[in-house]
């Protein structure tokens, strides 16, 4: 589903080149549920944005669903759903329902399939009470559920989530996690999730990738990750050790 081969993205900041992501190579097969971890500024968002075609890689290749994201962005958009936890992709001034209708028209989903999916999503995500509310008036938890529904209305094969549980209360978090697990298990949707919440990882992800200083520092199952540590360590301890010791600081701009 996703294939990166020595992909890199650098930025010029005041004449110096900063490598946000460097020589990144990995594969994600269809149906996987992958957690993508890393400290702030490690290159998580840059990777995600390259996968969606928002950023063009400066080196290497990126393929998603067999397409080059930055060149075939609109074709890819029909097959992927993206949720940014920090900001909404919905239309701020429109009621949630109108946003969904707009998405139906933009993604050219036929009316019947749309109705069915919207009904199913409304029920599982409990959107009913605020379908008529403009997006700007929604609470964070409501907005996130709305964003999730919006990303899934065109039944994408791949769902990319950038910190979907940020700022949510315990109940909302549990609801979203449960929904994602079922989506992956029942529909077989491939899910790639970045988060700082290790609870998300523990409860959802079979595979964990850890990025640091723009490079892959760990790639394996959750059990493999725990096996690297002495017995009795929690996942927090393991990740903290990896973040702080991590990869040698090769980030010095050239």
């Amino acid at each position: 589903m996703i294939e990166l081969d020595r992909a890199g993205r650098s930025f010029k900041v005041r004449r110096e080149t900063v490598h946000a992501v460097r020589d990144l190579s990995f594969r994600i097969e269809a149906g996987e549920f992958v957690g993508y971890l890393g400290p702030n500024g490690a290159g998580k968002s840059t990777t995600i944005k390259m996968l969606c075609g928002i950023l063009t890689p400066t080196s290497g290749t990126v393929r998603v669903a067999g397409l080059d994201p930055s060149r075939r962005r609109t074709a890819l958009a029909r097959r992927t759903g993206v949720v940014f936890g920090q900001r909404t992709t919905l239309w701020w001034d429109l009621p949630l329902r109108d946003s969904f209708e707009l998405i139906r028209l933009l993604y050219k989903v036929d009316r019947r399939a749309h109705r069915e999916r919207l009904d199913a999503l409304t029920e599982t995500l409990d959107l009913g009470p605020f379908l008529r509310t403009p997006v700007r008036q929604l609470s964070l938890g409501q907005r996130m559920r709305g964003d999730l529904a919006a990303a899934l209305l065109h039944a994408p094969d791949l769902l990319v989530l950038d910190e979907p549980t940020i700022g949510l209360d315990v109940v909302s978090k549990a609801g979203i996690r449960d929904f994602l697990r079922r989506l992956n298990a029942e529909r077989g949707t491939t899910v790639l999730l970045t988060t700082h919440d290790l609870g998300d990882i523990e409860r959802l992800c079979r595979r964990v990738m850890l990025i640091d200083h723009g490079r892959l520092a760990f790639d394996g199952t959750l059990e493999d990750l725990m096996a690297t540590a002495p017995a009795g360590e929690t996942i927090e301890d393991v990740v903290t050790r990896l973040y702080t010791a991590g990869v040698p600081p090769e980030r010095a701009p050239r």
Partner: peptide
């Protein structure tokens, strides 16, 4: 940062 949202639509 809202321009990103426009780039993920078809």
């Amino acid at each position: 940062g809202t321009f990103d949202a426009m780039l993920i639509r078809p």
